[in-house]
Design a protein around this nucleic acid. Structure first.
Lengths: 164, 164
DNA sequence: GTACATTAAATGTATATACATATATTTGTG
DNA sequence: CACAAATATATGTATATACATTTAATGTAC
């Protein structure tokens, strides 16, 4: 997975388990610890999620695009719409669609109404693939499942506050 | 920043602010919501952190390596040690060191004791740079600062549980 | 001490991010 | 209508991740 971890604190100790690393740390304060903890945890979850996806031959961004396209189906989506929904505006939807097209998971053709735009449509093959993948999604098979329902709720509240 | 967001839910609505996106969602459960929320939040924080680093001409992985090297200073570090401490075992320390070397922020020379290994040493130039950067670190200037101390503590507890 | 395994680092390739620029088309304004 | 601005997509380049392979040096077994 792709994540940059900005860690100021792993400078002087040997590596053990990541959680041990953190526990041994002396952080400047709870905020710094929370920051690093958040990066580590999201990285960990992404690795778990990617492992679930791997047998199906899709990367996470590719899967994400396919999910958006399925949401539109049977209507096509433009690249702009994909970028909008992807929420990572700087990621490159064109090239991810290139790869999906190469795998015959989407088709791409110029839109007649506005010839600047492209109609991207998910194929039957991709719909079948997604159907098989429904289940290994959304963190239920990751460490998130360790939480109680109220802890998940509290986590959501705190994360919302961070993004406020 | 590099983060893959696995979002099953942004398939049918127009994009507004990310937090609005989430609020409008109907998630399968709190777990799915927490998963997505975690990805979004860490992504957001990384973008904020990267923006702080940009004026100094360093990427986050490069900064991270330099911090490790400063922790070792005046001793050198081998590539193996950097990988160990980076905690992203699959990331490519050799090539990150290449770039730091090109910027004259580290030196690299074969270790005489074990000629397989390389001594990577942080330069004075890099130490001065890091000194200037001390301050824009650890999330204090990011959304983490929105939390109270006890919220940060609770967040840490919950994240630890996820990684258990 | 040679042969084989192990280790350290570098290199190769595919994918993705981050950001700038190019190209084609449409829209808007005079 | 002509021409500039805006829009949609694609392309280029640097960096990083993810993973496999290569190369050199060391360690170990016989």
């Amino acid at each position: 997975m792709y994540i940059h971890i900005f860690v100021t604190s792993f400078e002087t100790r040997p590596r053990v388990r990541i959680e041990d690393e953190i526990k041994q740390q002396q952080f400047k304060n709870e905020y710094q610890k929370a920051y690093i903890n958040l990066m580590l945890t999201s990285s960990r979850l992404q690795v778990q999620q990617a492992a679930l996806f791997k047998p199906f031959g899709l990367t996470l961004p590719q899967f994400n695009i396919l999910r958006i396209l399925r949401g539109q189906y049977p209507k096509p989506a433009t690249i702009s719409l994909l970028i909008e929904r992807m929420m990572d505006k700087t990621s490159n939807a064109s090239r991810i669609v290139d790869r999906l097209e190469a795998k015959e998971l989407v088709t791409r053709k110029q839109c007649p109404n506005d010839r600047r735009t492209v109609d991207v449509l998910i194929t039957e093959k991709a719909l079948a693939l997604l159907k098989k993948m429904d289940g290994c999604e959304g963190g239920r098979e990751t460490g998130i499942a360790n939480l109680t329902d109220s802890e998940a709720r509290e986590l959501n509240r705190i994360l919302d506050k961070i993004r406020t």
